[in-house]
């Protein structure tokens, strides 16, 4: 066989990095960070190595659900500009390989988390994978414009799992952290949908921008941002809150609500003229918003400043 034909035959063979890309490393970073917050904010102490291994397998479970999502959504990913270079639509990895990889890692991560910490945490991880793959990816994503709202719960589980790793139960505070990510997810992705304009439309995904229109999406972003500010401030009144949290939450929420208000006021003409600059800014800021919130929750858990009224 000539070398040129070998080049052609094997040019799409996957590299190690392609399998890593199946795990959605960006999403995994959010999973890791919020799971760490759950572990560190929980009352109680576990061995640091057990904490490390638990977070590693929570991350791996999150990655496994990403691989299964890429298996099932290969048709959608191939149409959308944002996702068409992913390993499955680009032909580097077959859909079946992604499925087998995802299933194997799901089983491994759940069993290892159970052995490393406890079986409640393992069950919660298994449920998270099930929720993301079956409830969100297979069911809601193609069915309803509320896909992001309900599906967002999957991304909100890691702090609950982290909390369960330490305490062996689900605390009220871990539910507040869940609520923060749950309410944060819709405006974050709706702002993305506002500047990715035709992507979801071309892929026939019933995103809010497609089904209800861009005006309605702006309304939804504003209302959810107000709800997010309420959840954020509610955390201050729990044992997770403290003076640093209070100051940071106030500043971040003022900026969030102001930014959402500016998005709400905007016309589509303005958006086209400036190439969706405010929508892009809102999307980036919402990422910073969540990272700072969980960063401060970790900080408060570790320094514990005496503070009246909490």
């Amino acid at each position: 066989m000539a070398e040129a034909s070998i080049d052609k035959l094997y040019s799409d063979e996957p590299e190690f990095g392609d399998f890593f890309a199946l795990l959605k490393p960006r999403v995994m970073s959010l999973v890791v960070f919020t799971a760490i917050a759950g572990v560190l904010a929980a009352p109680g102490v576990i061995h640091p190595f057990v904490a490390f291994v638990s977070i590693l397998f929570i991350a791996l479970g999150g990655g496994a659900s990403g691989a299964l999502n890429m298996w099932y959504d290969a048709d959608i990913d191939g149409v959308m500009a944002r996702t068409k270079r992913r390993p499955v639509p680009s032909g580097k990895i077959s859909a079946n390989e992604a499925k087998d990889f995802g299933l194997a890692l799901s089983a491994l991560s759940v069993v290892m988390l159970g052995l490393a910490s406890n079986w409640l945490a393992a069950f919660l991880l298994a449920f998270t994978i099930f929720f993301y793959v079956v409830v969100y990816t297979m069911w809601l994503k193609r069915l309803t414009p509320q896909n992001i709202v309900i599906g967002g719960a999957a991304g909100a589980f890691p702090p609950i799992i982290g909390w369960a790793v330490v305490t062996g139960n689900i605390g009220f505070e871990s539910l507040l952290m869940f609520a923060l990510i749950f309410v944060w997810t819709p405006p974050h992705f709706w702002s993305l949908a506002l500047f990715m304009k035709d992507d979801y439309d071309n892929a026939n995904v019933p995103m809010l921008t497609v089904t209800n229109g861009r005006r309605s999406t702006r309304n939804h972003i504003f209302v959810y941002s107000l709800a997010l500010a309420v959840v954020s401030l509610a955390i201050y009144f729990s044992s997770l809150g403290g003076p640093i949290y209070f100051v940071m939450a106030m500043l971040l929420n003022l900026k969030l609500v102001f930014a959402a208000f500016k998005l709400w006021l905007r016309s589509e003409t303005q958006c086209t003229v400036d190439n969706s600059i405010l929508e892009r800014k809102f999307f980036k800021f919402s990422l910073i918003y969540l990272f700072i919130h969980f960063g401060v929750i970790i900080l408060e858990a570790k320094i514990n400043i005496p503070w009246p009224g909490v």
Partner: peptide
């Protein structure tokens, strides 16, 4: 190049 990719994997 095929060998490099497989080696990396």
């Amino acid at each position: 190049d095929l060998h490099k990719r497989r080696k990396g994997r």
